[in-house]
Computed example of a mutant assay.
Amino acid sequence: MAKRKTERPDPSSLGLPRVGVDSHAHLDGAGEDRAMATPEAIGAVLDRAAAAGVAQVGHVFLGPAAHAAGRELFAGRDEVFFLLGIHPCDAAKAAPGDVAAMEAAFGADAGLRAVGEIGLDYYWDAGTAEVQKALFRDQLALARQLDLPVAVHSRDAAADTLAILDDLGFAGRPLVWHCFGGDAALAAEIARRGFHLSVPGPVTYAKNTALAEAVAGCDPSRLLLETDAPYLAPEPWRGKRNEPALLAFTAVRVAGLLGLDPAELWRRTGDNARAFFRL
């Protein structure tokens, strides 16, 4: 018997208005697909996003060298804003002057709206934990100095991440827990500190019940949506390369969990992102 073909509807068919924001994406393929690292390919992705109701996209530069090399890929695409940070998995190879180079980049590029993604990752490399912590603290200090929002990456490291944020007095400051994949208890700890959390495509996965329950209990005023493209495509595009247009499917799922109309959830999370990043 032939394998049944999965139906993959066009996200534009959901009819969402162009007010949504993808708060976190790697539009250049994040090193996974260099074919994406051209203005033409990125432009096509952004055009599909616009057709699906995405008004703005946050592109993440993973370090100052990536920003210097890739900024011109986005010339003329005013719907893209930028985040810049050194990922914890790159902590061991970060150069001594990288944080200073980040400071210079923020001073020169008004499109840079947040420090991120920064944080701790013990899933891939727990052996560099102390180096990661030191770099995380340095980048948090930069964000405070420049009065910028922060996008945190935390994988298998929630306790240490929260401890550092508490130690540095970050409660109440503009901070988003990027690609949230935790349970209701972690969501409550994030909310208690006045932080935002950003919901990715895996909330649409049938077996991801803990994440669904966590999102269902969240205050919509503290939610952002993201793709983390090219990773983590939502159903019904799971297993394919993710892109901002597919954020619409995540929005429909989150709206259902919160008992909101999809267009209303789409608008509210978009407004949250615009306020958070000062767009």
Score class of each variant (00 low, 15 high):
1 M>C: 13
2 A>N: 15
3 K>L: 15
4 R>N: 09
5 K>T: 14
6 T>W: 10
12 S>N: 02
12 S>R: 10
14 L>V: 07
14 L>P: 06
14 L>H: 06
15 G>I: 12
17 P>H: 01
18 R>N: 01
20 G>T: 00
23 S>Q: 11
23 S>K: 08
26 H>E: 01
27 L>G: 09
29 G>N: 12
39 P>Y: 11
39 P>A: 11
39 P>M: 10
41 A>H: 13
41 A>N: 13
49 A>N: 03
49 A>R: 01
52 A>Y: 09
53 G>N: 12
54 V>C: 12
55 A>E: 14
57 V>P: 08
63 G>P: 09
69 A>Q: 14
70 G>R: 15
72 E>L: 14
79 E>H: 02
81 F>W: 07
84 L>G: 03
85 G>E: 01
87 H>Y: 01
91 A>D: 14
91 A>I: 15
94 A>V: 00
101 A>Y: 14
103 E>P: 11
105 A>D: 05
105 A>C: 08
106 F>L: 08
108 A>K: 14
108 A>G: 11
112 L>I: 05
117 E>W: 00
126 A>D: 15
126 A>C: 13
128 T>H: 14
132 Q>P: 04
133 K>I: 06
134 A>P: 01
137 R>M: 05
137 R>C: 07
137 R>S: 05
142 L>K: 04
144 R>P: 12
144 R>I: 14
146 L>A: 08
147 D>V: 04
157 A>F: 10
166 D>A: 13
170 F>W: 12
177 W>A: 04
180 F>N: 06
183 D>A: 05
183 D>G: 12
184 A>P: 03
185 A>S: 05
189 E>Q: 09
189 E>C: 02
190 I>R: 06
190 I>W: 12
190 I>V: 15
191 A>L: 14
194 G>M: 07
195 F>M: 12
196 H>L: 13
197 L>S: 14
199 V>W: 03
200 P>Q: 11
200 P>L: 08
200 P>D: 10
203 V>T: 13
204 T>I: 03
206 A>F: 04
207 K>R: 09
211 L>H: 10
211 L>F: 10
211 L>Q: 08
211 L>Y: 10
216 A>N: 04
221 S>I: 07
225 L>G: 00
226 E>W: 03
227 T>C: 05
227 T>F: 03
229 A>D: 01
231 Y>F: 14
235 E>D: 02
236 P>E: 06
236 P>N: 06
240 K>D: 02
242 N>M: 10
243 E>Y: 00
250 T>Y: 02
251 A>N: 03
257 L>Q: 09
258 L>E: 03
258 L>Y: 04
262 P>C: 14
265 L>D: 10
266 W>R: 06
266 W>I: 05
274 R>N: 09
275 A>D: 00
275 A>V: 00
276 F>V: 02
277 F>G: 05
277 F>P: 08
